[in-house]
Amino acid sequence: MPRLPRLPLTAVLPPPPSAGVVGDPGVCVPGGEFQRVSAERGVVLGGPAAILLQVAHPLVAEGVAVHSDYTSGPAHRLLGTLQAALTIAFGDTEQAHAIARHVGAQHARVRGTTRTDAPGTPAGTPYRANDPDLALWVHATLVWTARRVAERYVGLVLTPEQRERHWQESKPFARLFAVPERALPGSVAEFDAYVERTVAGLVVTDAARRVAGDVLTQRTTPPLPGVAALARSITADLLPLRLAVDYGIAPTRGRRTAAGLLRTGLRAARPVLPQRLAEWPHAEVSRRRVRASPSRTSAGPGGTAG
């Protein structure tokens, strides 16, 4: 078993971007439902579940297996994804576009053909990471898991109207990764139906199981006893049952108990937590940038707030 790199605990707190252009709202609706959900630190609990949903698509799994560095540094890769998502959600327009261009350039190199057969996907099937259908599925996993964690663990109560706005306000994020408007479900009901249909066709391949094993392994230094087991419990709780079983993390009584205790504790703590602890600092940087008036700063066009 190769010795895998470890991650300092400080790295799980990604720094916010610079303030950006004064008054620039960015690509996502300022203060909207998408930002409200994305601002919650607790949403990061859904990261492993989102990854496992993604790689249960055989074409995504093949791309990750051949081109990704999850095995050499899975925790680092997860945090890179988190930082990119936070920058797009809360950065100014250029910051969001810049990180999307960076990720898009990486994705442009991810292409090939599948090496083995999987149900519905014979060996030799071509794939490319910037395929609009695959990009839509990756986006959908992030939106779906974030909403599920926010409601289930953080305790946010989203009305049907807020769920609708959350989905609609996520669409600029998807468009940055070349998902065409015609491919995006028109309503949250259509989005949920799309996720349900796609999940029904997902297949947990050996490649997907290897990714899951890497993602759900404790990587911090100093090590935190019990973190890997808790991550498996949370992920089993969030995933559709069939997929959790196929990944070998069925929601056993012990896992259900652990996830339930964490849900209870987090939901009780959230109302009394200071905003600076409950939210990513990116959200406050965004609020200050949007509230600021360009006429009150010395920054010229394209400048930044001090």
Rank of each mutant, 00 (worst) to 15 (best):
V110N: 06
R148K: 14
Q275D: 14
L158G: 01
V37C: 01
A11D: 13
A244C: 10
L238G: 07
S18I: 11
D237P: 04
D117Q: 12
S233M: 07
G20A: 06
L82Y: 03
A146C: 08
G260E: 13
V203E: 11
I234W: 05
L230M: 07
V215W: 01
L261V: 12
Y194W: 09
V12K: 00
R296I: 11
Y127Q: 08
A200G: 09
G306S: 06
H107D: 15
R242I: 13
S295R: 01
V245M: 01
A75V: 10
R232H: 07
P126D: 15
T217D: 07
S18M: 06
G300R: 04
V110M: 04
T205D: 13
V37R: 01
P15R: 08
A236R: 00
V29F: 01
R209L: 04
A118I: 13
A84N: 02
D214K: 02
G155F: 05
T87V: 05
E284C: 00
Q83R: 12
V12L: 04
G32F: 04
R77S: 06
P160W: 15
G47D: 12
V143C: 00
F191R: 03
L79I: 14
V149G: 02
F177R: 06
A140T: 15
R255N: 09
V103C: 07
V138T: 08
V203A: 01
T121K: 01
P225F: 13
T198D: 06
L79S: 03
R256A: 10
R267M: 14
T217A: 02
V203C: 00
A129E: 15
G201R: 05
A118H: 12
F177I: 12
A283R: 06
L59F: 02
T159Q: 05
R36W: 14
A85K: 11
T87C: 00
A207I: 00
T145W: 03
R175T: 11
G46F: 06
R101M: 07
G104C: 10
P5S: 07
V272D: 09
Y127G: 00
V43L: 09
A85R: 13
R270H: 10
Q162N: 04
H282D: 13
V290E: 01
A96K: 10
A129S: 03
A105V: 09
H282P: 05
V37H: 02
G63A: 05
P30A: 12
W280F: 04
A39D: 12
L134F: 11
L238W: 15
A19W: 15
L202A: 08
L158E: 10
G303E: 15
